[in-house]
Amino acid sequence: EDEVKKIVKRLIENGVDDEQIKEIVKRQGVDERIVDKVLKELK
C-alpha cells in the first residue's frame, strides 16, 4: 500500500487526473479500493 501511495503521489504531482491514475495503478494489478483509499488520503 505504501508503494501505491508513492506512485499515486508522483502521478498527482505530474498533473495526472484521478481517472488516469486509477487506470495506471489498476494495470499494475492493484485493487481499485486501495487506489480509491489512497486518492482520498492524498487529497
Score class of each variant (00 low, 15 high):
Ile12Pro: 00
Asp17Gly: 13
Lys26Asp: 02
Lys5Ala: 07
Val30Trp: 15
Arg27Pro: 02
Glu1Lys: 07
Asp17Phe: 06
Val38Ala: 05
Ile7Lys: 05
Lys6Cys: 05
Ile21Val: 05
Val8Glu: 00
Gly15Glu: 03
Arg33Gln: 12
Asp31Met: 06
Asp2Thr: 08
Glu1Ala: 08
Gln20Glu: 13
Ile24His: 05
Val4Ala: 05
Gly15Tyr: 04
Leu42Asp: 01
Asp2Lys: 08
Ile12Trp: 14
Val4Pro: 01
Leu11Thr: 00
Asp31Val: 05
Val25Met: 15
Val16Cys: 09
Glu23Trp: 09
Asp18Phe: 14
Glu23Ala: 13
Lys37Glu: 06
Ile34Asp: 03
Glu3Leu: 11
Arg10Glu: 15
Glu41Trp: 09
Glu41Val: 05
Val25Leu: 15
Ile21Asp: 00
Glu19Asp: 13
Arg27Thr: 07
Val35Cys: 02
Glu19Phe: 10
Lys22His: 06
Glu19Ala: 13
Arg27Asp: 06
Val38Phe: 07
Leu11Asn: 01
Arg10His: 14
Val4Gln: 01
Glu1Gln: 08
Asp17Cys: 11
Glu13Gly: 07
Glu13Val: 07
Asp36Pro: 01
Val8Asp: 00
Glu23Lys: 11
Val4Phe: 04
Lys43Asn: 08
Glu41Phe: 07
Gln28Ala: 13
Gln20Thr: 15
Lys6Phe: 08
Glu3Phe: 13
Lys5Ile: 12
Ile24Trp: 09
Ile12Gln: 12
Arg27Trp: 06
Gln28Val: 08
Arg27Gly: 11
Lys40Ser: 11
Lys9Gly: 06
Glu32Thr: 09
Glu32Asn: 06
Asp17Lys: 11
Glu1Ile: 15
Gly15Trp: 03
Gln20Pro: 01
Asp18Ile: 15
Lys5Met: 10
Glu23Asn: 10
Val25Asp: 00
Ile21His: 00
Leu39Ile: 10
Val25Lys: 00
Val30Cys: 04
Ile24Met: 10
Lys26Gln: 10
Glu23Tyr: 08
Lys6Val: 11
Lys6Gly: 07
Val8Tyr: 01
Lys22Trp: 07
Val38Tyr: 08
Glu1Thr: 09
Lys9Val: 08
Asp36Ile: 14
Gly15Arg: 04
Glu1Asn: 08
Ile24Gly: 01
Ile34Thr: 10
Lys22Ala: 05
Val4His: 01
Lys26Phe: 06
Leu42Thr: 04
Val16Trp: 15
Ile7Gln: 08
Asn14His: 11
Gly15Ser: 04
Glu41Ser: 07
Lys5Asn: 04
Glu41His: 05
Val25Phe: 15
Glu32His: 08
Glu19His: 09
Val35Met: 04
Asn14Val: 09
Val38Glu: 01
Arg10Tyr: 15
Arg27Ile: 06
Lys5Trp: 12
Asp36Ala: 12
Lys6Ala: 14
Lys5Val: 10
Lys6Arg: 14
Lys22Leu: 11
Gln20Trp: 07
Lys37Pro: 01
Val25Ala: 08
Arg33Pro: 04
Glu32Gly: 11
Gln28Tyr: 15
Ile12Phe: 10
Arg27Met: 12
Arg33Leu: 11
Asp36Asn: 11
Val35Ser: 02
Glu3Gln: 11
Lys5Cys: 05
Lys43Trp: 07
Glu41Arg: 05
Gln28Thr: 13
Leu11Gly: 01
Asp18Tyr: 13
Val35Ile: 15
Arg10Ala: 15
Lys26Cys: 10
Glu13Phe: 10
Glu3Ser: 09
Gln20His: 11
Val4Asp: 00
Asp18Thr: 12
Gly29Ile: 02
Lys37Thr: 05
Arg27His: 08
Val25Arg: 00
Asp36Tyr: 06
Asp31Cys: 03
Val30Glu: 02
Glu3Tyr: 14
Val30Phe: 15
Val38Leu: 12
Glu13Lys: 11
Lys40Gly: 09
Arg10Lys: 14
Arg33Phe: 12
Asp18Val: 15
Asp31Ile: 05
Glu19Tyr: 11
Glu1Met: 13
Glu13Leu: 13
Glu3Val: 11
Val16Arg: 06
Glu23Gln: 12
Asp2Cys: 03
Glu23Arg: 12
Val30Tyr: 15
Gln20Phe: 07
Val35Leu: 13
Ile24Pro: 00
Val30Leu: 13
Val16Met: 15
Glu19Cys: 04
Glu19Trp: 12
Ile34Gly: 01
Gly15Asn: 06
Asp2Gln: 10
Lys43Pro: 04
Ile21Thr: 01
Lys26His: 07
Gln20Ile: 12
Gln20Asp: 10
Val30Gln: 04
Val25Tyr: 05
Gly29Asp: 03
Val35Gln: 00
Asp36Val: 12
Asp18Trp: 15
Asp36Lys: 07
Lys22Ile: 13
Glu23His: 09
Ile12Lys: 12
Glu41Thr: 06
Lys9Arg: 14
Gly15Lys: 05
Val4Asn: 01
Gln20Leu: 13
Gln28Asn: 09
Ile34Gln: 05
Val4Met: 05
Arg33Ala: 14
Asp17Trp: 06
Asn14Cys: 13
Arg10Gly: 13
Gln20Ala: 13
Glu41Gly: 05
Val8Ile: 15
Glu1Trp: 15
Lys9Ser: 09
Ile34Pro: 00
Lys43Ala: 10
Val30Ile: 15
Lys37Trp: 07
Asp31His: 08
Lys6His: 08
Leu39Ser: 01
Glu32Asp: 08
Asn14Lys: 14
Lys9Asp: 03
Gly29Ser: 03
Val38Thr: 03
Glu13Gln: 12
Arg10Ser: 13
Ile24Arg: 05
Glu41Met: 10
Lys22Asp: 01
Gly29Phe: 04
Gly15Phe: 04
Gln28Asp: 06
Leu39Tyr: 03
Asp2Arg: 07
Lys40Pro: 03
Glu13Thr: 07
Val8Thr: 02
Asn14Leu: 15
Glu19Gln: 12
Glu41Tyr: 07
Asp31Pro: 13
Glu41Cys: 06
Glu23Leu: 13
Asn14Ile: 14
Lys5Tyr: 13
Ile24Val: 06
Lys40Cys: 05
Gln20Arg: 14
Asn14Ala: 15
Val38Lys: 01
Val16Ala: 09
Val35Gly: 01
Leu39His: 02
Asp2Trp: 09
Glu1Pro: 07
Val8Met: 08
Lys5Pro: 02
